[in-house]
Design a protein around this nucleic acid. Structure first.
Lengths: 237, 237
DNA sequence: TTGCAAAACATGTATATACAAATTATAATC
DNA sequence: GATTATAATTTGTATATACATGTTTTGCAA
């Protein structure tokens, strides 16, 4: 919260969520916002661009910044939201079981993360219990040269919080793949499959701000409890 | 192709795809690009912002614009790409079967699209055949007041091309949901399910640039042929 | 040669101006 | 009153400048 335009963005997000600006209506004009926040138009425009990218508004030339109806959007799994953030937003009771927390040498994963073939990786296997059912199985591989120490306690609470806030690593972007695959013996052991013979698999390669790949995650979901919601802008060809 | 920064963006995308700039290396500095394209730094920065948003580069302060490795990204289903664009990019033989093309009045869909309760909607049901197998079932609802005429020929080739290029409608953004559901009798009729009893369902609400909702699409995929690839930047909270 | 400080370089933020283009409000005319 | 022309409003693009902040290179000194 130090950049002016990010601050303005957050303030406007809060106002929209409070219902200060009704969906379908418009925000104050850029000129008005300049006066209100005592700043230049370009700074306001940067804040509005952020709002637009995250699906809060649609800018219409000559009219203004139309507020979009985010109610139907439900929760966005998109954008690298962690399990903890997610379940907190859903307001459901949740629990994490740590099944494995070891240092391994997996050549294939190393190759994918562009790190030394023989270097150590943290392997973390966790199941996620929501409403009394274990419905998500997370397998994480993290570069040990970047995350030196890892405890069961950290794995149980929030890995992302530890990495970002304690270690100060700058998680920046990820490429993500969603497919459906048959269940494995591991799925059967750690999940309450409830008769399902397939799971939704989300594989993510997570990168830091300096473009070093540092984490590979495989998140396996029971199909009936899986939902992915996305807001996408069409990039003109 | 009229805006300077969009033109520069496309030129740089082409150069990256040609391998002009190797993954892991950097683009020329903003200062250099200014000279090269004979423009101001802000204009260059707008082009670079587009590259960053679409996963081509990562800007690192003090270093430069690092080119990302998009090879592993495979095809992005994200960002509202149509079936035709998709299969063309995959280079596979494909075929579209039109099963229904009618004008209907569906109150529920009307409500979702914020249009008059009794207004007419185009209902289009199509199956998609790739490599000899019918693996996708698309059900589209379009507002007839915006898309007056629709023919079987258009539905067979490309709806998006017709809407954008022929009608000149400005498709701007969509909210999209991915879930897994049991197969319906319709799925069994129009798809080669190959024993599968569940399908991946993508529901999309598509909006125009002036924020009018005009299309609802339900795309039902056979699980083993489904893949969703995404590039996501972490929005700092 | 090594180590450190300074300079040069690269991107990030904030501000200002000018004009273009689309929409809306106003005024004038029939 | 309805239509049309004009003006005001609002967002989009392009350019320019100043300074901040992080990285790399250079050069001086021990």
């Amino acid at each position: 919260m130090k950049n002016k335009y990010v601050e303005i963005y957050h303030k406007l997000v809060k106002d929209i969520q409070k219902g200060e600006y009704a969906a379908g209506g418009t925000l104050p004009s850029e000129h008005d916002l300049c006066a209100r926040f005592e700043t230049s138009r370009e700074t306001i425009r940067k804040a509005l661009t952020l709002l637009s990218q995250n699906g809060y508004i649609q800018k219409v030339r000559g009219k203004g910044s139309v507020v979009l109806d985010r109610d139907k959007f439900e929760f966005p799994v998109s954008g690298l939201t962690s399990f903890k953030e997610l379940s907190e937003r859903l307001g459901q009771s949740f629990q994490t079981h740590v099944h494995e927390l070891t240092l391994v040498k997996e050549a294939e994963v190393c190759r994918q993360l562009n790190c030394q073939e023989g270097s150590h990786l943290w392997k973390v296997v966790r199941s996620r219990e929501i409403g009394g059912e274990r419905i998500i199985l997370d397998k994480d591989f993290l570069r040990q040269d970047l995350v030196h120490d890892l405890t069961k306690d950290i794995a149980e609470t929030s890995l992302y919080h530890y990495i970002e806030n304690e270690l100060g690593l700058d998680i920046s972007f990820a490429k993500k793949e969603i497919v459906v695959e048959p269940v494995t013996v591991e799925d059967e052991e750690f999940l309450d499959l409830n008769g399902h013979d397939q799971v939704v698999v989300i594989r993510s390669y997570v990168y830091l701000g300096d473009t070093t790949a540092f984490q590979f995650t495989e998140s396996r979901h029971r199909p009936d409890k899986f939902q992915f919601v996305d807001f996408a802008r069409r990039t003109k060809v």
